[in-house]
Simulated assay, not measured.
Amino acid sequence: MDLNTVAEVRDARERGVWRAGDAWLGGGTYLFSEPQPHLRRLIDLSRTGWEPLRITRGGNLEIAATCTIAQLSRYPKPAAWTAAPLFEQCCRAFLASWKIWNMATFGGNLCNSLPAGPMISLAAGLDGTALLLGQDGGMRTVPVAAFVVGAGRNVLRPGELLRAVTLPARALAARTAFRQASLYGLGRSGALLIGAVDPVDGTLTITITASTVRPVQLRFPVPPNAEAVREAVEHAVAPGEYFDDIHGLPAWRRHMTFRFAEEIRRELVEPAAVG
């Protein structure tokens, strides 16, 4: 879609004053999908030269905001990453064409902050930390699980930029479980839950996304039973936090959340019962 109110496209490498009507341009799959009458200028990130993915000295994985879904999917995952299947599972949750995969960015999915954003699910489920750059040159970090605060809302300040997300080596070595449901065969996620067992202390983390307006994380230092998981979900998710749109009513999303949380518990805590 043409953005006929945009009068200028500026290279993000050039310093300039952020002003009303500006927007960061990554892959543009959202920006060009619908009218944006409030926009006057796009700040293009395509020439920043950020390395899409890199393993840091501590074994963490840093994913640049400009990394495309195709690059994330194709990236060779080390054998030590027990959580590696989550990458493809979350990429496939897009249910998008190859054109979108090659343009849509990891950071754009987070910054859109839609409940069904599968990169939010992946990054939150693996305890990712977002690096944010301010217009004054300052930096701050925010857990991805706390980055999204509502449907289409996040903690970014005016002009602030999501630079990268870091997934810790410890989370990459976790045993994981994935559950996703849509009302239609090629529909948007109505519920997407990820479970992870810490390889060091055995803590079980269940991350709830898509069914809720924001990511919700539950942590169990000792293996929980079914009642403990159900009570934790009931306490952590307020009735008004189940998302309501054409892709699923709150009652159905709530039902699938409880169902998937229990399935994940059984898979990761009672594998013999599942097998």
Rank of each mutant, 00 (worst) to 15 (best):
R157S: 09
T129N: 14
R265W: 12
V213H: 07
E231T: 11
A146D: 13
V269P: 15
L3G: 09
L132C: 04
V6L: 03
T176I: 08
N154I: 10
A12H: 06
V144N: 02
T29D: 14
S97F: 00
I206L: 03
L132H: 08
A251V: 07
T105M: 03
R57V: 15
W81H: 06
L86E: 01
L132K: 00
G240K: 05
F147S: 04
V155N: 03
G275M: 13
P168I: 06
E88G: 03
S46C: 08
P35R: 01
S97W: 00
R40G: 13
V269G: 14
V144C: 01
P118H: 04
T166Q: 15
P199A: 07
I208V: 15
N4L: 09
I55M: 14
R259E: 12
N4C: 11
I120Q: 05
G107L: 04
R140I: 05
R179S: 12
R140N: 11
H255V: 02
G185S: 10
V9C: 14
P199I: 00
W98V: 10
T48D: 10
G190A: 15
H247G: 06
V149K: 05
L162F: 04
A251M: 05
P85L: 01
R153V: 13
V142L: 11
S113F: 04
Q217Y: 01
A124Y: 00
R259W: 00
R219P: 07
E14L: 15
G138D: 07
